Amino acid sequence: MTTTHSETAEARAADRLLTALRTGVACTPVRDLIGSDDLPAAYRVQERLTRGRTDAGASIVGRKIGLTSKAVQEQMGVDQPDFGVLFDDMAYDDGARVPIGRLLQPKAEAEVAFVLKSDLADGPLDVAQIAAAVDYGVAAIEICDSRIDGWDIAFADTVADNASSGVYVLGTRRLTLDEFTPVEVGMRMLINGAEVSTGDGAACLGDPLNAVAWLARAARDFGEPLRAGQVILSGALGPMRPLSPGDEVVVEISGLGTVRATFNEGNTHD
């Protein structure tokens, strides 16, 4: 089989990002290889990264949705969110001490996370079907990260780089959709006791369930539908904020309670 120029460029982009992930040294953007807005190419690079991670022993446990804020979409010059893959080694429990050294340029944001009780592979994948597939929701901290130096990213860069994913922390209070309404939640995020971000459910594509519906359709279109048991990070409820060693992050989401984590020196998974 003949290797095309685009396949070679995508392989080089994936190698650049995997090297940054492995060495902890941020790299230059990959848009010089795949263009700034070639969405199919960017997701093919992401798929190469995913294979690289799973070949090294990581397991896929869910998906994350990025760019759910209209303001951020306008800043990036796009009209849609993006998605990335969650791996088992990204997950931390409430109250965890997270080694900040495993991250390059971390930024925290507050989200509603959902866990699915059924597959989302068939049917219209509308909000009603999404709601029926949700087992429960929890408060979550997502730590976004970029392997690209200085967060110098265009849309294709962040898609290729697994939607700028880092790690995540899930709360312990699990509520069904009979017990809370995602669009109605309010959020506060504090770093070292100071309020740094506020928002609500409507900030996430109008409703976090809208975001999951978008993801379900996009994931099916790309050939990897959402599955029962997966964790879905549905997108930020307010602005994200940078982190430094020693920071404590606390997220409060009405109904879902509080989730917290401390970001300590070091690079070993706690």
Results as ranks from 00 to 15, higher is better:
Arg22Ala: 15
Arg22Met: 06
Thr23Phe: 03
Thr23Ala: 09
Thr23Ile: 04
Thr23Trp: 04
Thr23Met: 08
Thr23Glu: 12
Gly24Val: 06
Val25Leu: 02
Val25Ala: 06
Val25Ile: 07
Val25Met: 00
Val25Gln: 01
Val25Asp: 02
Ala26Tyr: 00
Ala26Met: 06
Ala26Arg: 00
Ala26His: 00
Ala26Phe: 04
Ala26Ser: 03
Cys27Val: 11
Thr28Ser: 15
Thr28Trp: 03
Thr28Glu: 15
Pro29Arg: 10
Pro29Trp: 06
Pro29Glu: 09
Pro29Tyr: 10
Pro29Gly: 09
Pro29Ser: 10
Val30Lys: 05
Val30Thr: 06
Val30Arg: 03
Val30Asn: 09
Arg31Met: 13
Asp32Asn: 08
Asp32Met: 02
Leu33Met: 09
Leu33Val: 02
Ile34Gly: 15
Gly35His: 03
Ser36Cys: 08
Ser36Ile: 06
Ser36His: 08
Ser36Ala: 15
Asp37Ile: 05
Asp37Glu: 12
Asp37Trp: 00
Leu39Trp: 13
Leu39Gln: 13
Leu39Arg: 11
Pro40His: 09
Pro40Gly: 07
Ala41Pro: 07
Ala42Asn: 03
Ala42Val: 00
Ala42Leu: 01
Ala42Ser: 11
Tyr43Met: 00
Tyr43Leu: 03
Arg44Phe: 04
Arg44Ser: 08
Arg44Val: 00
Arg44Gly: 11
Arg44Glu: 14
Val45Lys: 09
Val45Asn: 12
Gln46Pro: 09
Gln46Asn: 10
Gln46Leu: 00
Gln46Gly: 09
Gln46Asp: 01
Gln46Ala: 13
Glu47Leu: 09
Glu47Gln: 13
Glu47Tyr: 06
Arg48Ile: 04
Arg48Leu: 14
Leu49Trp: 08
Thr50Cys: 15
Thr50Gly: 10
Thr50Pro: 10
Thr50Met: 13
Arg51Glu: 07
Arg51Lys: 01
Gly52Ser: 11
Gly52Ile: 00
Gly52Gln: 03
Arg53His: 14
Thr54His: 04
Thr54Ser: 07
Thr54Asp: 07
Asp55Ile: 03
Asp55His: 02
Asp55Ala: 14
Asp55Cys: 04
Ala56Leu: 13
Ala56Met: 02
Gly57Arg: 12
Gly57Ile: 11
Gly57Met: 13
Ala58Asp: 14
Ala58Thr: 14
Ala58His: 14
Ser59His: 14
Ser59Trp: 02
Ser59Glu: 12
Ile60Arg: 12
Ile60Met: 02
Ile60Cys: 08
Ile60Tyr: 05
Val61Cys: 00
Gly62Pro: 04
Arg63Met: 00
